[in-house]
Design a protein around this nucleic acid. Structure first.
Lengths: 222, 222
DNA sequence: TTTTTCCTAGGTATAAATACCTAGAAAATA
DNA sequence: TATTTTCTAGGTATTTATACCTAGGAAAAA
């Protein structure tokens, strides 16, 4: 049996220094919790974990270099014992699907209060899962059960090629150009795009772009 | 002459409770500063200002109901004495143009450190303007001088109709449907869209969507 | 091994977008 | 008032996208 720990160790991963320090400040009000580190992107995160593993990782979903979702998968695979609380500003089904299927333990929104943050930490500390009440309002029970049935996100149902083509579609290329980029016939591009439209039940590329951006499949870079 | 005030009064406007409280926490470390209120959206902001005006308004650029930019214009028009520090997560030229031409006094990024926040407040308190060093790295001097010459954002050069059409284009409609929505000939829609493409030097609607989303002309709703 | 899925790409046809024109009426501006 | 801009919309032509087909080879799964 393990001796009871003095602190519950927490690592903060968020690319916004201000937010990170704000959260650290909030957490520091509770003497039972201890922030053992902060990282600003996915690379730093993995680097940090090589030497030290926190009990809880509070992770922003939109980080540079490694998206929050990918980070969840990687961290859970490498260090299954580390609990992960996703912290996001997106009230979005797809983010939720992504995060949960990737293995997150909790899902908190920045719209939530600081009390909610401490509650989320407490629940995860107790081995339970946590879902933001702000989010659960919008999620009907069937959606909750859907994720429990390991339903994957729409993006994950895409094939490799379809994902490649989707990214190029979002960049506004024509079939001809995309064909040149991928060394394929423009007709093949047409085929993949048609499949994308069919799979998502959409009518045109603009809808695809909106969908992809909205659901975080692509990051609209500066 | 006014008596020197005990506190520098600050109002926080941000739709994310967690961020808001984090900033309040950071500010509270400085006894010369006092957060006199928090609001979560543009309506609350204007309502609050009816009764009390802070010396400084710290404003997130992406708020519901009233965008940060619009809020700056309204607040500066109604209460010119209120200084405004924009707090944004977007490292983006257009946001900067928007904010500055709308009358913001400072532009801070969430990537910046808390020391930077206090520095920004200090500078504005002293009647100076503030620009995030994180941002200024990316902004060449000519860009800085450009905004000083009251150069407006690309979006502001659009006509009313063009903005309407742009919004519909972003929603993925065909010319035919857009014509029905606006009670215009699809040919007229084509004309406006062609002007949009020409004005922004772009080739297709997907590019327009990316541009509009990236620059905050439209808000990709959930 | 059989079956299925994926990737490839062509045929054909229609719909839509885009690129050039012209041009008049209304509105804003000088 | 005169000028410019905006909004309207049509003509024409080309390019692109989209919707259906077929179909063979490769890869993965059953």
């Amino acid at each position: 049996m393990e001796a009871k720990q003095r602190y519950y160790t927490i690592l903060l991963a968020d690319d916004h220094t201000l937010i990170r320090h704000g959260i650290r400040n909030l957490i520091s009000n509770n003497p039972a919790l201890k922030v053992i580190g902060e990282v600003g992107d996915g690379e730093e995160l993995l680097e940090f974990l090589k030497t030290t593993q926190p009990e809880l990782l509070i992770l922003d979903i939109s980080m540079p270099k490694l998206t929050g979702i990918e980070a969840v998968s990687r961290v859970k695979k490498l260090y299954p014992a580390v609990k992960i609380l996703m912290l996001t500003m997106h009230k979005n089904k797809q983010y939720f699907y992504h995060a949960m299927s990737a293995g997150a333990d909790g899902y908190l929104m920045k719209e939530d209060s600081d009390e909610e943050l401490l509650l989320a930490i407490k629940r995860i500390q107790d081995g339970k899962s946590y879902l933001s009440p702000f989010l659960s309002q919008d999620f009907a029970d069937d959606v909750i059960s859907a994720y429990r049935n390991n339903r994957s996100s729409p993006f994950e149902t895409l094939t490799k090629r379809e994902r490649e083509v989707l990214n190029l579609v979002v960049e506004g290329h024509t079939s001809k150009v995309m064909g040149e980029i991928l060394c394929l016939s423009p007709r093949t591009i047409d085929h993949h795009r048609a499949n994308l439209l069919r799979k998502f039940d959409m009518k045109n590329s603009v809808d695809l772009v909106n969908f992809a951006v909205r659901n975080g499949f692509v990051t609209p870079s500066d």
